[in-house]
């Protein structure tokens, strides 16, 4: 019988993806494409927030949107209706996008002249935080009905994001949601994260969020 060989690997499962994500980021820099990865739970208002954002910025930048879902194309249709190029990615049952899937989506977006590409990740606070997509910046949405304790329960998501949008501020009076407590919970996990309260439905805070995005894009372009 053949002798069993032991091959030492000693490497994180995420190492390959991290390397591919870094490679994608370098290529995006060369091509002048700013990729934003937008993450949140299902139903927190990613698509509505995105539609508002696109409305405000589409005359300034050439925008393309990647919609990632397990199934359906409803989000891509919603985004296409705003007048930007949108494509739907199906993850085939997977709960997140990795760097390779993101690259395929960007290629399909004919990203040649897109300046701002926004990836709407699968609605999930766990897995998307673990897999680097190659995005330049990561944003998370936390909506008021989800509760101000979410940063405590899903710490990694709030550690990896550069900005947290607190959405659905219009219904705050009806929920046991404390904005200051929420800010504090985010700060404990990630002191550098910007926190912007918004309401995608009424448009509250969207101008501030758009300013943040403009600033990040300008800084990245140098």
């Amino acid at each position: 019988m053949d002798r069993v060989r032991i091959i030492e690997v000693k490497q994180s499962v995420f190492a390959d993806n991290d390397r591919r994500a870094d490679q994608l980021r370098r290529e995006l820099k060369e091509r002048g494409i700013f990729l934003l990865n937008l993450m949140s739970s299902p139903g927190s208002g990613k698509t509505t927030t995105l539609a508002r954002t696109v409305e405000l910025l589409k005359d300034e930048y050439k925008i393309g949107v990647l919609e990632a879902d397990i199934d359906s194309d409803v989000d891509a249709r919603t985004m296409a209706a705003t007048g930007v190029e949108a494509i739907q990615l199906h993850t085939g049952g997977m709960c997140h996008l990795d760097a390779d899937m993101t690259r395929q989506g960007l290629d399909a977006l004919v990203a040649g002249d897109v300046e701002l590409a926004i990836l709407e990740n699968v609605g999930n606070l766990v897995c998307p935080a673990e897999f680097d997509t190659g995005a330049v910046k990561n944003a998370a949405i936390l909506s008021v009905p989800e509760g101000d304790d979410k940063p405590l329960k899903y710490p990694l998501m709030f550690q990896v994001c550069d900005v947290v949008l607190i959405n659905k501020m219009d219904v705050a009076p009806y929920f046991d949601f404390d904005l200051d407590r929420c800010r504090e919970h985010i700060r404990m996990r990630n002191p550098d994260a910007e926190v912007i309260p918004i309401c995608a439905k009424t448009g509250e805070g969207i101008a501030q969020w758009a300013d943040w995005l403009r600033g990040q894009m300008a800084a990245w372009r140098g």
Binding site: V4, R5, I7, V9, Q11, V13, F14, D16, N17, G93, M94, C95, H96, D98, V126, C127, E130, F131
Partner: peptide, 28 residues
Amino acid sequence: MHELGIVFHIIDRVERVGRENGLEKVSA
């Protein structure tokens, strides 16, 4: 769901190590 994604990444990595080392069969 989360675990499945991780398993796919492990399999990719092990297949690469397999090719690099000329492995015929992985037992564990």
